[in-house]
């Protein structure tokens, strides 16, 4: 599984939605499951899975799935 697929699978699992719902353009908050509580749970799951931490500025700058994939990929490679 490549990195992008893995991240999207974690997003789907964390939000408890089918994997096909998680498109690049899907924005945080676009589906009922992705509310603030869902988002907190997701960020915690990603941080734990990849052993990374997020800075506030980085979290504020996220808008959609592609932003999350890019940020997690970048931080994991550091």
């Amino acid at each position: 599984m490549n990195m992008e697929t893995e991240i999207k699978q974690i997003i789907a699992d964390s939000l408890k939605v089918p994997r096909e719902v998680i498109t690049d353009e899907l924005c945080i908050g676009d589906i009922p499951q992705w509310d603030s509580l869902g988002h907190m749970t997701l960020m915690t799951a990603l941080a734990k899975h990849f052993g990374i931490t997020f800075q506030r500025e980085e979290m504020t700058d996220l808008e959609d799935v592609s932003d999350i994939v890019a940020l997690v990929t970048e931080k994991s490679s550091q």
């Binding site: 924005c27 945080i28 908050g29 992705w34 509310d35 603030s36 869902g38 907190m40």
Partner: peptide, 30 residues
């Protein structure tokens, strides 16, 4: 939709010149 997307939230406050805002304490904590 919700408070989840903070980037969109701040952009909206900015672009729409929002003057009023409502929340519950948990939203503020978030």
């Amino acid at each position: 939709g919700s408070f989840a997307n903070t980037k969109r939230l701040y952009r909206t406050i900015d672009e729409e010149k929002v003057t009023g805002f409502t929340m519950v304490p948990a939203s503020w904590k978030y």
